[in-house]
Nucleic acid binder design. Structure first.
Lengths: 130, 130
DNA sequence: CTGCATCCCCACGGATACTG
DNA sequence: CAGTATCCGTGGGGATGCAG
């Protein structure tokens, strides 16, 4: 049904009854799932940005969450942090190769979201009406 | 860098400074992000399952969350619910065409997770050590 | 078997103030 | 400019019990 990837592959499927804490899929999905990670990765897909630029690009994130999410992404090796010893200091964030490698699957998902958002809204309306 | 999708498309990008509540990408990502939705969609990719079978397939979900997540997915039109008037009642859940359409992008992501989980674990270890 | 209702906890995340 | 520290509210979600 699609050339992207085979949805029916039996391996790499989560939660077949083993320890959920070790499931790679859950591990990644949990990070994807947090409120800001994907948004920041997507925002950095254009190129490196400084802290303040990121704030402006994602207006409704608090600096607390921005700092924290950036640190988590850095910890996972998805972004790198470069400090320029200027006055005042400038800090630049950019996607690592690993970070760039998630852009394609992520874009597939956002593309899907964009393509099917209308259907979903309709389905919700119908469900709430019935 | 990839033939899957073009990460650099400027449209369909979220949070360029407008109302975040109306952003389709966030809307979908929020659902993807919740703890169980994607897991259930993936579990149903094999074929229809009954309530109890889903519980067994995802051992660490509470029935509260199972019921609730299934209802949310149904509301969004991703799964359908079929009641068989037997005694005791049997209820079957299956992916709708819309639900099946998300399998490909989702699989791309789980594939990525599986492929790069090792790198991520390494990055974390390095970060925590440094 | 398939659900709803209730109680309750805790971690996600927002607001604000302070530092190098 | 780029953070850190603190306080605190909200709600996601687990445990348990009851009902068709």
């Amino acid at each position: 049904m699609s050339a992207l990837a085979d949805p029916d592959r039996k391996d790499l499927r989560p939660s077949a009854g083993f320890d959920p804490g070790q499931c790679p899929v859950r591990d990644v999905l949990d990070r994807i799932g947090d409120k800001w990670s994907t948004l920041l990765v997507l925002t950095l897909s254009d190129g490196p940005l400084r802290f303040g630029a990121l704030r402006r690009a994602v207006p409704d994130i608090s600096q607390r969450m921005l700092t924290q999410t950036l640190r988590d992404l850095q910890r996972d090796g998805l972004i790198s942090r470069h400090v320029f010893p200027t006055q005042p200091p400038a800090v630049e964030y950019r996607l690592t190769p690993l970070g760039r490698s998630i852009l394609a699957p992520l874009s597939a998902l956002t593309r899907w979201a964009d393509d099917h958002h209308g259907e979903i809204r309709q389905a919700r309306a119908a469900f709430d009406a019935g």
